[in-house]
């Protein structure tokens, strides 16, 4: 492939696709054009599916290196990962080949009995991090910290049934704080982020994003 095609080919695809999606978002288009737009969005999902294969190979690439080198403190975890990946891939492939799909019993067992509880466990760990972070945030060192503590307590009590039992006013006060104070603080951030996204879009359309420059 020539340097020109390598440099400008992807840029041309991005430019055409971005302009096409902008036009179909803002303007009324005939049905065939909208159908094509749906297809373009589906292409993204298809490409993402193929990227999963690349991802699996990439994971194996560095974990096999750890295994071969017997990297201290790592190789055992790499072994668990490689074995789990291969078993899951094999179960999934058998499910597809036999026409059963994701309900193939061994695959479904791996997903429901190992993956789902593991995912839920990691999510649950978040509560301990929230506790330790809250401990740091709510230490009263000055007047603004005291204000933050009081506001935090109102919002927390407003979101729990215990808070309602202590004082029913916590719930409406918490809603008022979220609708007015919190929303007022978040809106400039959302507006700023939106503007940043637009300008990043412009830089991408013009091929001025850093990662594509030579």
């Amino acid at each position: 492939m020539s340097v020109v095609a390598r440099r400008y080919g992807p840029q041309a695809v991005i430019l055409i696709m971005m302009l096409f999606l902008i036009v179909t978002y803002f303007f009324v288009m005939p049905k065939p054009v909208m159908d094509f737009e749906s297809s373009v969005i589906k292409w993204g999902s298809v490409a993402a599916g193929f990227a999963m294969i690349v991802g699996a190979i990439d994971i194996l690439r560095y974990h096999i290196v750890y295994l071969v080198r017997r990297t201290p403190g790592q190789w055992f975890y790499s072994l668990v990962l490689v074995v789990s990946l291969l078993i899951t891939a094999a179960a999934g492939t058998i499910g597809i080949v036999t026409g059963v799909g994701t309900t193939y019993a061994p695959f479904a067992w791996l997903y429901n009995s190992i993956y789902v509880p593991a995912q839920a466990t990691i999510y649950s760990i978040l509560v301990f991090y929230i506790a330790s972070a809250s401990f740091r945030a709510f230490r009263v060192r000055n007047a603004p910290a005291l204000l933050l503590l009081i506001t935090g307590l109102i919002v927390m009590f407003g979101n729990t049934s215990l808070g309602y039992v202590i004082w029913p006013g916590f719930t409406p006060l918490s809603v008022w704080l979220n609708k007015n104070i919190v929303a007022a603080a978040f809106r400039p951030i959302i507006i700023g982020a939106g503007l940043g996204i637009i300008i990043t879009g412009l830089r991408t359309i013009l091929g001025r994003e850093l990662y594509r420059r030579e």
């Binding site: 940043g196 300008i199 990043t200 412009l202 830089r203 001025r208 994003e209 850093l210």
Partner: peptide
């Protein structure tokens, strides 16, 4: 980096005055 500052940081990271100038339109 709070909110839009990540986009400004992306522009600053380039070191390219033309890219940095786009922050002004924000």
């Amino acid at each position: 980096f709070i909110g839009e500052e990540i986009f400004a940081a992306a522009a600053l990271a380039s070191g390219d005055p033309a890219i940095i100038a786009t922050i002004r339109s924000q």
